[in-house]
C-alpha cells in the first residue's frame, strides 16, 4: 500500500476527470456555482469511498458474471442514503443539483473505480483510492466552478458566501455570460483537459532529458 503514490495518482497523473475522462456529465452540468461544485464533490467522494470499501470487502464472494449489477445495487443504495440526507439537511443544495444527485448512480467514476480498483485490491487501499479519487474529482469541479462563475457571472463563492449571491469581483456588465450556459461547460472542460495534456507531456519530456 503506497498512500503517497495513490494521492498523486488521484490528484494529477490519473485524475478521474482530466486524465481518465470519467464523470463528464456531472462535471459540466453542475459547475455553475461554487456551492454546487463543492456539494457535488463531497457527495461523490463519500459515496465513492463507501462503495469502494463495500465492494472491496465483498470482492471474493461476488460472482464474476453479475458483478456489474452487484456494483450498481451497492452504489444505488449509498446514493439513495445521501440523496435523502441532503433533502433533509441541505435542501438548498438538493434543489440546485436536482436530478444529478440520483444520477450519481450512473456516474462512471464510481463504477469505473469499482471495476478497475476496488474489485482487485484490499479494503485499506480501496478506502484511500476512494478518498483520493474523490478529492481529485472535487478539485476539478471547484476549479471549473470558479472559472465559470468568475468569468461568466463575475462573482466568487456563489450559493455559499455573502448570503448566497457570492462576492462580486467583476462588474456584472463585463461578465462573459456564455460561460454560465451549457456551452461554457464544454469549452472550459476542453481547455482544462488540454492544459493537463500539455503539462503531462512537458513533465514527461523533462524526465526523459534528465
Amino acid at each position: 500500500m503506497n498512500i503517497g503514490k495513490q494521492f498523486k495518482e488521484g490528484m494529477i497523473t490519473n485524475n478521474p476527470v482530466l486524465v481518465q475522462l470519467l464523470g463528464m456529465c456531472s462535471t459540466m452540468a453542475i459547475t455553475t456555482s461554487f456551492f454546487n461544485g463543492l456539494g457535488m464533490g463531497v457527495a461523490v467522494t463519500i459515496i465513492l469511498t463507501l462503495s469502494n470499501i463495500i465492494i472491496s470487502a465483498m470482492r471474493k464472494i461476488i460472482p464474476d458474471k453479475i458483478r456489474i449489477a452487484m456494483f450498481i445495487v451497492v452504489i444505488a443504495g449509498f446514493v439513495t442514503c445521501v440523496d435523502l440526507l441532503l433533502q433533509a439537511f441541505v435542501p438548498a443544495l438538493s434543489e440546485s443539483l436536482g436530478v444529478f444527485i440520483p444520477l450519481i448512480v450512473v456516474n462512471c467514476i464510481i463504477l469505473g473505480r469499482a471495476e478497475a480498483f476496488s474489485y482487485k485490491n484490499g479494503i485499506g487501499a480501496s478506502l484511500f483510492d476512494g478518498i483520493f479519487q474523490g478529492i481529485g474529482y472535487t478539485v476539478v469541479l471547484i476549479v471549473m466552478c470558479v472559472i465559470r462563475e468568475l468569468l461568466g457571472a463575475g462573482t466568487f463563492g456563489g450559493g455559499l458566501l455573502n448570503g448566497g449571491d457570492g462576492i462580486r469581483i467583476i462588474p456584472e456588465a463585463f461578465g462573459v455570460k456564455i460561460l454560465t450556459l451549457p456551452v461554457g461547460g464544454f469549452l472550459v472542460l476542453g481547455c482544462l483537459i488540454a492544459l493537463m495534456q500539455w503539462a503531462l507531456a512537458r513533465s514527461k519530456k523533462k524526465e526523459e532529458t534528465k
Binding site: L21, V183, G184, F186, G190, C191, I193, A194, Q197
Partner: peptide
C-alpha cells in the same frame, strides 16, 4: 478529447 469538447461546445 479537448478539441472534441470544444467542437461539442
Amino acid at each position: 478529447f479537448p478539441i472534441a469538447l470544444v467542437t461539442a461546445g
